[in-house]
Amino acid sequence: MKLYDFAYSPNSRKVRAVAYELGIALEHVHVDILKGASRAPAFLAKNPNGRVPVLEDGDFVLWESNAIIRYLAAKQGTSLVPAGAREQADVDRWLSWQLAYLSPATAKVAFERVVKKLTGQGAPDQAAIDAGTAEFAQCTAVLDAALDGKEYVTGRLSLADFALAAHYHLTPTYGLDLAPHRRVVAWLERMVARSSVQRAYADGLASMQ
């Protein structure tokens, strides 16, 4: 299988971490989104949305990172997706929450503080930073409460943990503060201790050098 991605991005990072966790070998193709490579015609033919990552498995082309990690888990038959209907729904709930709440909040701040600087798009918009920071604090308080008495987001290690950790691991880079959310901090420390997450993180750093 071939993965087209930009290793530093959280959505690419989550796929790499899950693949490493499951022992699935992927051929990686670097797509430099900072230089507009995801808008090239050849890439748009794979994903008309112009976003990474994209997975190719033979003639099957799959985009959307959460769909990709679900696909990898299904091929492997892993415990990262529980067997019961309620337990699966709980994992899907948090995958959806990441897309609907966490990603938009962090993306606002990341764009203003990181992406603009890297791509020369001007000065940060403080109003956008403030809005994203407030949204981040609000949604992270939700996760913090949900982690009460739990080691992992749904009780035991699942795809939801990898999807969320890929975003939370980057929050210090954006200047977002996790300290008020002690359960989230402890959970993230457990996730970052995993060799699969560490490898994905190292890939991301290497891609920026």
Score class of each variant (00 low, 15 high):
Tyr8Ala: 14
Ser9Leu: 14
Pro10Asp: 09
Pro10Leu: 02
Pro10Met: 11
Asn11Gln: 03
Val15Tyr: 05
Arg16Asn: 08
Ala17Thr: 04
Val18Ala: 01
Tyr20Ser: 12
Tyr20Asp: 08
Gly23Lys: 00
Gly23Pro: 03
Gly23Asp: 08
Leu26Ala: 02
His28Phe: 09
His28Ser: 10
Val29Glu: 12
Val29Gln: 13
Val29Trp: 06
Ile33Thr: 12
Leu34Cys: 07
Pro41Val: 07
Pro41Thr: 04
Phe43Ile: 15
Ala45Lys: 12
Val52His: 06
Val52Ile: 13
Leu55Ala: 03
Glu56Asn: 00
Asn66Glu: 10
Ala67Lys: 01
Ile68Arg: 04
Ile69Lys: 08
Leu72His: 02
Ala73Arg: 02
Ala73Asp: 07
Gly77Phe: 05
Gly77Ala: 05
Thr78Tyr: 00
Ala83Trp: 01
Glu87Tyr: 06
Gln88Arg: 13
Ala89Pro: 11
Asp92Asn: 08
Trp94Asp: 11
Trp97Ala: 11
Leu99Met: 15
Leu99Tyr: 09
Ala100Val: 04
Tyr101Phe: 11
Leu102Gln: 15
Ser103His: 13
Ser103Thr: 14
Ala105Val: 14
Thr106His: 15
Thr106Arg: 14
Lys108Val: 03
Val109Leu: 03
Phe111Asn: 13
Arg113Ala: 04
Val114Asn: 11
Val115Ile: 15
Val115Ser: 12
Lys116Cys: 12
Leu118Val: 01
Thr119Met: 08
Gln121His: 14
Pro124Ala: 06
Asp125Asn: 11
Gln126Tyr: 13
Ile129Pro: 01
Gly132Gln: 10
Thr133Ser: 15
Gln138Ser: 14
Gln138Ile: 05
Gln138Lys: 15
Ala145Ile: 02
Ala146Arg: 07
Leu147Ala: 10
Asp148Gln: 07
Asp148Met: 05
Gly149Pro: 05
Lys150Gln: 07
Glu151Gly: 07
Tyr152Glu: 02
Tyr152Lys: 00
Tyr152His: 09
Tyr152Asn: 01
Thr154Asn: 01
Leu159His: 02
Phe162Trp: 12
Ala163Ser: 12
Ala163Leu: 13
Leu164Tyr: 09
His169Pro: 03
His169Ser: 14
Leu170Thr: 14
Leu170Met: 07
Leu170Trp: 06
Thr171Arg: 05
Pro172Cys: 13
Asp177Tyr: 05
Ala179Glu: 13
Ala179Met: 05
His181Thr: 11
His181Cys: 09
Arg182Ile: 09
Val185Pro: 00
Ala186Leu: 10
Ala186Met: 06
Leu188Val: 03
Arg190Phe: 07
Arg190Gly: 08
Met191Glu: 10
Val192Leu: 15
Ser195Thr: 12
Ser196His: 01
Ser196Arg: 11
Val197His: 08
Val197Asp: 03
Gln198Glu: 09
Ala200Tyr: 04
Ala200Ser: 12
Tyr201Val: 15
Tyr201Phe: 14
Ala202Ser: 04
Ala202Asn: 02
Asp203Pro: 02
Asp203Ala: 04
Ala206Cys: 06
Met208Gln: 11
Met208Ser: 06
